[in-house]
């Protein structure tokens, strides 16, 4: 259980985390989403006391992380794969971290086996790939057999097999009653892994709800439309009686510029409108609302760093 209350962190005058309150509950996987610079990593560092909060508080299992007698048993943390001395072997790194809590060789060998590092355990970490560094970071997080896991971008740099492994590990640990809190940029990954999602934008919580509710937030069902006259159709749909609720999302594909998605209208109504205006439709398919879509519509006003200035271009509404 992680509880943040009015948690704030300023770097100079910049508000990295701005009066954030949330609860991460045991027995489920909680996803932590947000664009780059939204404050996810800072929040995670605040949880384990690596950064000092400017104001507010955050507790783990009822106490500040620093007040626990066996911190590694309370929280296992992966902040980034590079929090490891490059001159040391993986096994020595784990032995050194574990030794602080009297965790010995047996458990170190266990987590090495669990994370599939057996073949490189005696090699120096400096030569590790991003994926292997990530596995070593997860191994270190598991050392204390912690009741809570805080993983910042755990699938970053992992191959598909590694991604699946992290997913099943997170699910399994949550089913054992542990608190799992993980951040990711891969929204589709979150849909498969998380039960609950907290979305952060510019240092503030902009959504905190079960996955299903977040998807519903996006406006529910989408309809994929293919037409040779996308601009005319968009204009037409926007001028209907439901115009204010209708959103037309441009295609993210440059290969299929004539495809876009519409939310707020069902397929039958779109077909009728197009027919009455004489616009030919090549495709009209209802598709389930995706978490990706929900996330984009939630964060499109909160993105800190726009790509070029046209962002959030790919999925943005052009009304």
């Amino acid at each position: 259980m992680i509880e943040a209350r009015e948690l704030s962190k300023y770097y100079g005058r910049k508000k990295a985390v701005d009066a954030v309150s949330f609860t991460v509950r045991p027995g489920m996987v909680t996803g932590f989403l947000g664009p780059n610079g939204a404050g996810k990593s800072t929040t995670m560092r605040l949880i384990v006391g690596l950064d000092r909060a400017t104001s507010g508080s955050v507790t783990v299992n009822g106490k500040p992380y620093t007040a626990h007698r066996a911190p590694l048993r309370e929280v296992g943390v992966l902040l980034d794969a590079k929090a490891i001395h490059t001159g040391r072997s993986a096994v020595n790194h784990l032995l050194a971290v574990g030794a602080t809590h009297g965790i010995g060789r047996k458990r170190v060998d266990e987590v090495i086996g669990l994370t599939g590092l057996d073949s490189v355990a005696r090699k120096r970490v400096g030569g590790f790939s991003l994926g292997m560094g990530q596995r070593l970071g997860i191994a270190a997080a598991l050392l204390g057999d912690p009741a809570t896991l805080v993983l910042d971008e755990p699938v970053n740099g992992l191959d598909p097999e590694g991604v699946m492994w992290v997913r099943s590990l997170a699910r399994q640990l949550a089913s054992e009653g542990r608190t799992i809190f993980l951040s990711s940029h891969l929204m589709s990954e979150m849909a498969l892994t998380a039960d609950h999602i907290i979305v952060l934008g510019r240092g503030r919580v902009i959504a905190d709800a079960p996955v299903a509710d977040i998807v519903a937030l996006s406006g529910g069902t989408l309809v994929r439309v293919r037409t040779p006259h996308p601009a005319r159709l968009a204009e037409l749909l926007a001028s209907t009686e439901l115009g204010t609720q209708v959103q037309v999302h441009a295609s993210s594909s440059t290969i299929e510029p004539d495809v876009f998605q519409v939310s707020g209208l069902d397929a039958a109504r779109i077909g009728e409108l197009a027919a009455s205006a004489g616009i030919a439709l090549h495709e009209l398919t209802p598709v389930a609302g995706s978490l990706e879509q929900a996330y984009m519509s939630l964060t499109q006003d909160e993105v800190e760093y726009h790509a070029g200035g046209t962002a959030p271009a790919s999925e943005g509404a052009f009304r």
């Binding site: 007698r69 066996a70 911190p71 590694l72 048993r73 050194a96 971290v97 574990g98 030794a99 602080t100 809590h101 009297g102 965790i103 010995g104 047996k106 458990r107 266990e110 050392l143 204390g144 057999d145 009741a147 054992e176 009653g177 542990r178």
Partner: peptide, 25 residues
């Protein structure tokens, strides 16, 4: 299978942060 089912060093005693452990580390 449970939160504290694994005693990391194989003994019954649960791991705890100690200054002796820090020195070893």
């Amino acid at each position: 299978t449970a939160q504290h089912s694994v005693s990391a060093d194989g003994a019954d005693r649960l791991p705890v942060l100690t200054f002796g452990g820090i020195l070893r580390s």
